[in-house]
């Protein structure tokens, strides 16, 4: 295996033209490589193709050009083994209990029952959901449901975790606490994380490295190294270095956001 866990070269996504509409160049070209165990965030103005980038990496959408290598193997429009995705929308299944939701992927994959129970119990404890194992998602708060979606993904032991604004629907305090939990999970699982977010604070607090994207078609216009220690949490926000990082992100992003706003209207 090469030193890169994930490697993108010249990745582009163009929505083909349909009757009466011209083709839309949504993304790229993107070049990016992530080291194993790295925490990488992508920030960018709305509509810049952040989520498209995640879809293409996950194999949920096919790139129009360029290559994606995950653990050395090419990804083309199909989800490879070892990738987990958490979406912004609540994707917990309302007809299953918390336990059955978490066990869903393992059971479909034919994992033996005893092992399923063991792994789910462990993951629920890990994500603080143990006491809700027999509850249904509708009985949980929004934050708890999102935690369940993360647990459902973690139980499959993904080596690359893709997060598409997972805390987008939560309030600021809950977001900060969920971020701390995410850091803990990241440290303990050793997975590589790619987080899409529109929150500069969130990106600055959590990441080793942050990619700033331009307005559509989205390309990286800046890569910011935070230099944080692996042991860290949201109390970083009080430190002077934090303001430097968010300041640099905003400096790179401001013009792009203005451009995106003009494009939308």
């Amino acid at each position: 295996m090469s030193a890169e866990h994930l490697c993108l070269t010249g990745v582009t996504r163009i929505y083909p033209a349909t009757e009466g509409h011209a083709a839309v160049h949504a993304l790229g070209p993107i070049d990016l490589s992530l080291k194993p165990g790295e925490f990488f965030s992508v920030v960018g103005p709305s509509g810049c193709g952040k989520s498209t980038l995640l879809d293409v990496i996950a194999g949920l959408a096919r790139q129009s050009a360029g290559t994606i290598l995950f653990e050395g193997k090419p990804v083309t429009g199909e989800v490879p083994d070892g990738i987990g995705v958490v979406f912004q929308e609540d994707a917990s299944f309302p007809w299953l209990t918390v336990f059955d939701n978490a066990a869903f992927a393992l059971r479909r994959a034919g994992v033996p029952d005893a092992e399923v129970r063991e792994r789910v119990r462990h993951t629920l404890a890990f994500t603080g959901l143990s006491s809700f194992a027999q509850a249904y998602p509708a009985q949980l708060s929004g934050g708890m449901r999102q935690r369940l979606c993360i647990a459902r993904t973690l139980v499959t032991r993904p080596r690359l975790l893709l997060l598409d604004e997972p805390f987008g629907a939560l309030d600021q305090q809950t977001r900060l606490l969920m971020g701390d939990e995410l850091l803990k999970l990241w440290r303990e699982t050793g997975a590589t994380v790619l987080l899409i977010t529109h929150s500069l604070d969130e990106a600055a607090l959590l990441s080793d490295r942050i990619g700033v994207m331009s307005a559509r078609p989205g390309v990286f216009i800046d890569l910011v190294e935070t230099g944080w220690a692996r042991e860290r949490d949201s109390r970083l926000a009080a430190e002077a270095g934090f303001g430097v990082v968010t300041g640099r992100l905003w400096a790179a992003l401001r013009d792009q956001s203005i451009k995106a706003l003009a494009m939308a209207s």
Binding site: Y15, D55, L60, T76, G77
Partner: peptide, 17 residues
């Protein structure tokens, strides 16, 4: 089949039509 499985393209097309 791969084209069909692409949810973004289908969603985008549905919206346009």
């Amino acid at each position: 089949a791969a084209q069909d499985a692409d949810p973004l393209v289908t969603a985008e097309r549905a919206e346009r039509r």
